[in-house]
């Protein structure tokens, strides 16, 4: 019941087709990605390079001074493997003067500033390279709200958003992502020693099984407890899903007229293409 195994050939076909189609019908043929050297951005990069051709992909490494050196070298391994175009733009000289003007001891604030600085760079490169920004967020982090709004969450399209972290690992392995990248502890790398699982308080393997039941299989929280999950763990996941829903939606517009964007002005983005 909680087997999250996917057919990776089929996932690869659908996701590369999605990237190619949605970028070309928007009038582009190129893509820009932030490459941290972690598994999500690496898999997104592999899929995008396969979809568009490596020459049409620009990856940007954006280290902060406290970023792990492994992140840079892992990203280099991906760049060398795929032959994508690459830039390195350190964010330290952008972030530190800003942080100096605000008393931001709070790590979340500091982390958000870094994530949003990277967004600014990616969207600037999007214009310069004439490519759309391809996102790297997976279903687990989107559901848990473990993402910075208008930061790492910002993108033109997201190929990984319906894959749990466990499935990201499976697809990454099938596509030949280096084992060292697959096996290292997932981290936003916003400060030294930060890991996703340390910060969230549970492992992806555990929470993915729970989210799969809650979301995909429509289990109630009680059904999940019946299925053997700790009540506090279930409550925490449910709380996060609800609390961070705002990060998954466009901002609501206050309705006044008879036709309001988002409510009764309804078109797909692919309208006319």
């Amino acid at each position: 019941m909680t087997d999250l195994t996917i057919n990776t050939d089929l996932a690869r076909t659908i996701l590369t087709g999605f990237i190619r189609t949605e970028i070309t019908r928007a009038g582009f043929k190129r893509a820009v990605l932030g490459l941290s050297g972690g598994i999500d951005s690496t898999l997104s990069c592999f899929l995008t390079a396969e979809a568009l051709g490596a020459e049409n992909v620009l990856v940007v490494r954006m280290p902060y001074r406290s970023s792990s050196p492994d992140s840079l070298s892992d990203a280099q391994m991906v760049i060398d493997r795929l032959g994508v175009q690459a830039l390195t733009i350190p964010i330290t000289d952008m972030v530190d003067p800003l942080l100096a003007q605000i008393p931001a001891e709070n790590q979340v604030r500091r982390g958000n500033v870094m994530a949003r600085m990277r967004m600014i760079i990616l969207y600037d490169q999007s214009e310069a390279f004439k490519g759309l920004v391809v996102g790297t967020g997976n279903k687990t982090e989107i559901l848990l709200g473990y993402t910075t709004l208008y930061g790492d969450a910002a993108c033109a399209l997201n190929p990984l958003g319906d894959l749990y972290k466990t499935q990201v690992r499976q697809l990454a392995r099938a596509m030949g992502v280096p084992e060292s990248i697959i096996n290292k502890p997932p981290s936003a790398d916003l400060w030294a020693g930060q890991t996703d699982e340390g910060e969230l308080g549970f492992t992806y393997a555990e929470v993915d099984r729970l989210l799969y039941l809650l979301v995909d299989q429509r289990y109630s929280p009680d059904d999940c407890i019946q299925a053997g999950f700790e009540p506090r763990f279930v409550q925490e996941a449910v709380r996060r899903i609800r609390k961070y829903h705002y990060k998954r939606l466009m901002p609501p517009i206050a309705k006044l007229s008879n036709r309001t964007i988002g409510y009764d002005f309804l078109y797909l983005r692919d309208w006319g293409t």
């Binding site: 087997d3 996917i6 057919n7 996932a11 659908i14």
Partner: peptide
């Protein structure tokens, strides 16, 4: 619309 990706070779 394709949906329901699991281990099987088709959706």
């Amino acid at each position: 619309p394709g949906r329901g990706l699991n281990q099987a070779p088709e959706l």
